[in-house]
């Protein structure tokens, strides 16, 4: 960890100003000289590892008074970006009406981390690629653009099979983001010119030729809230992992179904643990739409979800695992009591 300046933002304007002042236009946000600190569960780690070297930390926890609300009334769920993962996971209305959110949070990290980590920080969590997190490797396009990718032909069991490029195969590690994708969530962003909203699915950027650019956030922008429409009574989150708790997904699926009289009116399929970004499997969705559910359909949808998947030496298993998981999650969503 390198020495840094610690600042405390007591209102959103102050935070935005402190962050944008330090952000150079040509730098990706991940390398900006000032970084926001919320729960700190990713940032502090990466600073200790010398992967992130911000000159300044802007502590945004004082904004929690306005930014940590959980508003469940009405046709929309609004979650403040500084709400703690544990508080949201334990909320009775969320468990009842948005099970995929509660479960994706409950199955993430450990109790201690969920008590610290915020929703906004969680969706911004950076990859767990071992080569990214270890600065003794010189070749990581995400850390040092143009330097190559050690994972491509290295130990890549945990790496992505979807959304990869020849520059980067690092997996997006989170769980909650898939739930947001599955529920058509909107993300609310606060910046210099006030507040803007966009579909959550547009937040993350696949690596392409610029794996160091991970989101569409602009310099000085902060996530302030998430908004989720209440239109998916059936939703499921399934997660396969090496141990029973406190472990990242080898494959996860967030499913939302709108079923009427046995017919699937609409569907969302989001995948985690297998892709470089929170992944929406549109091919699977369109296959499901307008069909009557059966196990064969679930399998075909799962196949479609992974039609473009590319496995490498150690992670090819994720393709077949992901398909089985998606099919199972679809079965569960279709039969769940609502």
């Amino acid at each position: 960890m390198r020495s840094f300046l610690y600042q405390r933002a007591t209102d959103p304007g102050m935070a935005v100003q402190a962050l944008s002042a330090a952000a150079a236009a040509n730098n990706p946000l991940t390398q900006a000289a000032a970084q926001p600190l919320a729960g700190g569960t990713t940032l502090i780690d990466l600073m200790k590892l010398d992967v992130m070297r911000p000159a300044a930390i802007v502590d945004i926890n004082p904004l929690a008074r306005g930014w940590s609300g959980i508003e469940t009334g009405g046709e929309k769920l609004r979650l403040g970006a500084l709400a703690k993962m544990s508080d949201v996971a334990a909320h009775a209305d969320i468990q009842r009406h948005y099970p995929v959110i509660a479960n994706s949070l409950r199955l993430a990290a450990s109790a201690q981390l969920r008590n610290m980590a915020t929703l906004g920080g969680n969706v911004m969590q950076r990859t767990r690629c071992s080569y990214f997190r270890d600065t003794s490797y010189d070749n990581c396009n995400k850390r040092i653009p143009g330097s190559g990718c050690a994972a491509m032909d290295g130990v890549n069991r945990m790496h992505a099979v979807l959304g990869t490029s020849d520059q980067c195969i690092a997996t997006y590690p989170g769980d909650f983001a898939q739930a947001l994708i599955a529920l058509d969530a909107t993300v609310e962003i606060t910046g210099k010119s006030g507040t803007r909203s966009m579909p959550f699915a547009q937040l993350h950027k696949a690596p392409g030729n610029t794996p160091d650019i991970e989101t569409t956030l602009q310099p000085g922008e902060l996530i302030s809230a998430f908004s989720i429409p209440r239109r998916w009574p059936r939703s499921v989150y399934l997660k396969a992992r090496d141990r029973q708790s406190y472990e990242f997904a080898l494959s996860s699926a967030a499913i939302a179904l709108d079923v009427q009289d046995g017919m699937i009116r609409d569907a969302r399929v989001a995948l985690g643990g297998v892709a470089t970004v929170p992944w929406r499997a549109r091919e699977a969705e369109s296959l499901l739409k307008g069909q009557k559910f059966d196990d064969g359909l679930a399998r075909r949808a799962a196949d479609a979800a992974f039609a473009d998947a590319k496995g490498r030496q150690h992670n090819s298993f994720k393709i077949s695992l992901g398909k089985r998981l998606v099919a199972r999650a679809l079965q569960q969503a279709s039969t769940m009591e609502v």
């Binding site: 767990r128 071992s130 080569y131 141990r243 708790s245």
Partner: peptide, 25 residues
């Protein structure tokens, strides 16, 4: 412990990647 065979280096040299059981296991 995973070894990168190209470089003879240990890759998962931390408690997040070198798994040991948690209570739930």
């Amino acid at each position: 412990t995973e070894i990168d065979e190209r470089t003879a280096r240990y890759v998962n040299d931390n408690f997040a990647d070198y798994l040991v059981p948690v209570n739930a296991d």
